[in-house]
Simulated scan of single mutants.
Amino acid sequence: MKIALINGSPKSGKNNSARLLRSFEPLLGKDHELFHFHVSRLPLTESDYSALCHMDALVLAFPLYVDAIPSHLLRMLTELEDYMKAERSKEIMLYAIVNNGFFEGEQNKIAIRILQNWCARSGVRFAQAIGQGAGEMLQSVENVPHGHGPMKNLHNAMDVVAANLQSRKTGGTLLLSPKFPRIAWKIAGTMGWNAMAKQNGIMKKEIRRRLP
């Protein structure tokens, strides 16, 4: 099976979408051809778009932006839609992993709905999506073994999606929050923001200051 792993993060360096794809890739086994694309690094070429039209499955990972899809990724999907209508000759399945900075994974449901609408327009079959909350935790737990720690439910969801992909099955949308107390997540996040502010010469009271 030919599978495209598409990183939709606008960041060209380290990013959570890349972390998610790195965790997902080993679950696919070694019997598939894997192709990697990063939408923000360089604009996709005509040959890239054409290649995507001849995949068996697309795995798209991206961060939530204003409850929706990042603008650069939406532009890419709009262009890919035209290629799909012209070149697609077989059924292509789309699987997605969306992460956001809120604690609740349910915050991703609108972006996932946008993907479903795009699939309906382009002729791609929407197969399944994961919507993960507290995405900024991914960096701090990326060395935790698969199936353990606060992202255990995410790992379990990835297992389900990977199995469905290899069997060309569809599944329900999985909206997840980490297995971690929300109050502890909030405290840790606040400490992190305060530390970043201090590194940049900003005091706490300046963070809270309201503009006139």
Rank of each mutant, 00 (worst) to 15 (best):
I110K: 15
G29T: 02
I69L: 12
L52D: 07
G189Y: 12
N99H: 01
K152A: 11
H38R: 08
I202H: 01
M84N: 01
E79K: 12
E25S: 07
L176D: 00
E136H: 07
R19D: 05
K205L: 13
F180R: 02
M158W: 14
S12G: 01
N200P: 02
K152F: 07
W185S: 04
L174K: 15
S9I: 05
G201T: 10
Q139F: 09
F62Q: 06
K179S: 09
W193A: 14
N108R: 00
M55D: 07
G135V: 08
G189V: 10
G192L: 07
P178H: 04
P10N: 06
Y65V: 05
W118D: 13
L165K: 00
R209M: 09
L80R: 04
P43R: 13
D67R: 15
M137W: 03
A57C: 15
S50V: 01
I112G: 12
I202Q: 00
T190Q: 07
K152R: 13
A127N: 14
A197T: 11
S71I: 04
C53K: 13
H54C: 09
G201Y: 08
A96F: 11
L27M: 03
H54E: 10
G189H: 12
Y95T: 12
G131V: 03
Q116V: 00
A188T: 13
E142M: 15
N164E: 08
K109R: 06
G133P: 05
N153C: 09
R210F: 09
K152V: 10
K205T: 14
D82A: 12
G189I: 07
C53W: 09
M203P: 06
R88G: 09
A197F: 14
I97C: 00
G123M: 03
L73P: 03
V141W: 04
N100F: 13
L64P: 03
N153H: 12
R209L: 01
A197L: 13
R22V: 00
N117T: 07
P181D: 07
G131P: 03
L60E: 07
C119R: 05
M191D: 01
W185P: 01
I3E: 12
L44H: 11
R75L: 09
L52V: 07
R75F: 10
G105E: 15
R121C: 05
V141F: 14
L27D: 03
N156K: 00
P212T: 06
L174E: 15
A188H: 12
K204S: 14
A127Q: 13
H146P: 04
N156G: 00
R22A: 05
G189P: 12
M196K: 15
I110M: 15
P178G: 06
S177G: 11
P150H: 04
M137L: 10
Y65P: 02
A4S: 13
A61M: 06
T78V: 03
V124N: 02
F103M: 09
Y83W: 14
F103D: 09
L175G: 11
G29D: 03
I202M: 01
A129K: 04
R208N: 06
N200E: 07
M1A: 10
S17L: 00
N143K: 12
S167W: 05
